[in-house]
């Protein structure tokens, strides 16, 4: 009596399946979230109601539990969920479906034969949402929403390694807003923040999905361009320069125009590390500033040591 109450009282989904994967028991938690009463589903194949579960991985794991008496674990990280239930009770998360961690294990009769298996379903949406939030906080810049410096540096290392292995081209643009201090001094810091946010968006809209734009410092940004030669990177930089020069940013009743200075670098002879790539882009950026700003420059090891 008490044991059977537990089956329905626990805040966990519990299903018992027979060897044909027909539902033998379906607890109240499952009934509530699936809106399928036990009367409706008991005796029927689980796949009649959840056809998406009829997959090689699900079958393989269930068979393995019947055969070896081991457990099968369907983690949220890999599967997100086994049963497409609506997510709710999750403040501020945008999961459409309840994120689930599911376990399958054996149930034996008095002769130790496994005729049934159980499946438990745990709602881990909240944990998944926190994890998602932590990842975002760790990789994104809080103000602009684009990637942060930490993420850029990690990606840069990966891309440089790829270049070393496969010798694929890789370029970098470093850019900086001209006279940004003046914007802050003239229009206030809120306007400055507004410009940073909008510039980030402007750049993000003009680069490819595989490119990475990150906020590198205060008003300094970096674009990491995989599979891109310096010629293409210079062309993109020029495209960005013209686009931003033409843009008028409206903050409250003010119209603000900005320009950017850029430095371009690529992995080529003698440049084979992330540090060298960043350094040359930075050198290019300062060359652009020196030439009067609103410019694109590229410094190579050859220009430096002809």
């Amino acid at each position: 009596m008490i044991f059977s109450q537990m089956f329905d009282m626990l805040d966990v989904g519990i299903v018992i399946l027979d060897s044909d994967l027909k539902v033998y028991k379906w607890n109240r938690w499952m009934a509530t979230h699936s809106k399928l009463s036990p009367e409706k589903i008991v005796g029927k194949s689980l796949f009649d109601f959840f056809p998406d579960l009829n997959t090689p991985w699900f079958l393989r794991n269930c068979k393995s539990v019947f055969t070896f008496g081991n457990f099968a674990f369907f983690s949220q990280k890999l599967h997100k969920y086994c049963f497409p239930f609506k997510a709710y009770n999750t403040l501020g998360s945008d999961f459409e479906h309840m994120q689930q961690s599911c376990t399958v294990g054996p149930l034996r009769d008095e002769n130790s034969r496994i005729n049934y298996i159980y499946l438990t379903v745990q709602d881990v949406t909240e944990v998944a949402a926190y994890e998602h939030k932590l990842i975002t906080m760790n990789t994104r810049d809080g103000l602009t929403g684009i990637f942060n410096r930490r993420y850029l540096e990690a990606k840069l290392k990966e891309e440089v390694d790829r270049h070393i292995r496969y010798n694929r081209p890789l370029s970098l643009i470093m850019l900086d807003i001209d006279h940004f201090k003046k914007i802050n001094d003239t229009h206030g810091h809120q306007a400055g923040d507004f410009i940073l946010k909008n510039l980030a968006t402007t750049i993000d809209e003009r680069i490819r999905a595989v490119d990475i734009v990150a906020r590198y410092g205060g008003e300094e940004f970096c674009c990491l361009l995989p599979e891109t030669t310096s010629e293409s990177a210079l062309a993109l930089a020029e495209f960005l320069r013209m686009g931003i020069e033409a843009e008028i940013y409206h903050f409250k009743d003010k119209s603000i125009k900005i320009t950017i200075s850029q430095g371009v670098s690529d992995l080529s002879d003698g440049v084979d590390s992330a540090e060298a790539l960043l350094k040359l882009a930075d050198d290019g950026l300062y060359e652009s500033k020196r030439l009067g700003r609103n410019k694109v420059s590229m410094i190579t090891n050859k220009t430096k040591n002809p």
């Binding site: 991985w57 794991n61 393995s64 081991n70 099968a72 983690s75 990280k77």
Partner: peptide, 16 residues
């Protein structure tokens, strides 16, 4: 995930 699944089945089969 693939490693975990194969590992889970192989360990489960042998220990089982």
């Amino acid at each position: 995930g693939g490693l975990l699944e194969i590992g889970n089945i192989l360990i489960g089969a042998c220990v089982g």
